[in-house]
Write a protein that binds this DNA or RNA. Structure first.
Lengths: 163, 163
DNA sequence: TATTGTTATACTCTATAACTATA
DNA sequence: TATAGTTATAGAGTATAACAATA
């Protein structure tokens, strides 16, 4: 089932290479929009409902300070706004703007284009198998449904009793 | 064929997340050996034949200065040695040691273990489909056969008239 | 005292550019 | 002048820790 004897033929290693390549490609496409790949998870999450920053961080599986940066950048592009919560003045609720929704849509189109290029050599059966297989792997490994992956430890499934 | 409407469901994005996760897992396993994932490509390449540093850089698709660092680290672990070329004293031929071969073997075993964990939820048909599909994608995109992926542009085959 | 968001800082990975020693 | 390797530096990505305002 795993016929390779070498690291470079392993799935672990191959995924790393492909991930780097795919992210790079997508980032290039996204650049003209003023976005980077990780921003997309935020936009798509907020498209569903406004969210506080910590909840956001937890959901996409990154640390809060990273969220601050991403929100700064997205706010600079007019894709969202932070609204102080009048009930709890520590909180800021993050809301997507119409511009943000438009960006998310454009980004989704670009991602689809990249996908087509990546899958160029596969027939639709193979492509589907890869897609579904990887989705299953991601689910089994507990990757956040949406959002960028936690780099290392971080058990996002069990954030503990906090909040 | 690409039924998703969102970035976060795209293959491009998914590969990025999975790549990060897989690389992190593998790095954790490798750490006790004093290795990191990228070192493995070097070791496996050298296992075939000694090589000069520039050739090495080109083959695995990274910039020469990165090779210097990696070789320093691998030499510190006793995995290889740099031998000055007596014909052309600018060159250093890099040779793997027995220790290096042993490390490469251990690393391959660890990679295999990680693969098994990653593919835990897939039956062997699906696992094979994913493996073969991804290998095909990698080939189609021109990833270096062995070694870590070039981050972005970098046409290592044609460095151009610059310098 | 705990929590929300922020800033400051550090570490990894990778790249470019300037430098050395040879050729 | 060109090439092999090296060093110095920079940028993107992420994380931890200390801090301010508020609860």
């Amino acid at each position: 089932m795993q016929p390779q004897e070498s690291v470079t033929e392993s799935l672990a290693f191959l995924l790393g290479k492909l991930g780097q390549m795919a992210t790079g490609r997508f980032a290039d496409r996204l650049a003209p929009l003023g976005l980077r790949p990780r921003h997309c998870a935020v936009l798509e999450l907020l498209a569903t409902a406004p969210l506080g920053q910590l909840a956001l961080a937890q959901t996409i599986g990154v640390t809060p300070s990273v969220v601050v940066d991403m929100l700064d950048e997205l706010e600079a592009v007019g894709a969202l706004r932070r609204v102080r919560d009048s009930t709890d003045r520590r909180r800021q609720v993050v809301e997507i703007t119409d511009g943000g929704r438009a960006l998310a849509l454009s980004a989704a189109r670009l991602a689809k284009q990249v996908d087509i290029e990546l899958l160029r050599e596969l027939d639709s059966t193979q492509a589907t198998a890869v897609r579904e297989g990887l989705a299953r792997v991601a689910a089994a490994q507990g990757l956040p449904v949406t959002g960028s992956a936690p780099t290392r430890n971080a058990a996002p499934t069990d954030p503990g009793p906090a909040t």
